[in-house]
């Protein structure tokens, strides 16, 4: 599996586990730390953070949407307004968290790059 996907998956797994116990914003330290430890370029770290944290929301949201939350999701999607579609609400939910995760991962990657000015190990393989 390419390194990029492994990074995204790691962020997804760790942020999911952390959110079982802690509030949603725990994805910020998780994505930051994983990206900082991993040493990817900024762009890839951002994408991996977005995908990883996004997945940590998309998967459970979709599962709950199909297991009893659809009526409420559709109604909330009318209120927000998102056209009354709970699917859109699930997509948007994951994006909200994903953007935060992506930014946290980006800052992690850049802080690492600043701390070790030479090009990070393994960059070329990403």
């Amino acid at each position: 599996m390419p390194r990029f996907w492994r990074l995204a998956l790691l962020i997804a797994v760790l942020s999911s586990l952390a959110q079982l116990l802690l509030p949603w914003w725990v994805v910020v330290p998780v994505a930051f730390a994983v990206a900082a430890g991993w040493g990817a370029t900024g762009g890839r770290a951002f994408l991996a953070g977005l995908l990883g944290v996004g997945l940590s929301w998309w998967l459970p949201a979709l599962w709950l949407h199909t297991h009893g939350a659809a009526r409420l999701a559709d109604r909330l999607a009318t209120l927000l307004p998102l056209g009354g579609s709970g699917w859109t609400l699930a997509l948007v939910s994951g994006l909200v968290a994903g953007v935060v995760g992506g930014l946290a991962a980006l800052s992690g990657a850049w802080v690492r790059q600043a701390a070790r000015p030479r090009s990070p190990e393994g960059t070329s393989t990403l």
């Binding site: 959110q19 459970p60 909200v96």
Partner: peptide, 15 residues
């Protein structure tokens, strides 16, 4: 975000 989180937010009100 706390409202839309599938861990603590509205998705958890699934019946």
């Amino acid at each position: 975000a706390s409202l839309l989180s599938p861990y603590r937010g509205i998705w958890r009100n699934a019946e």
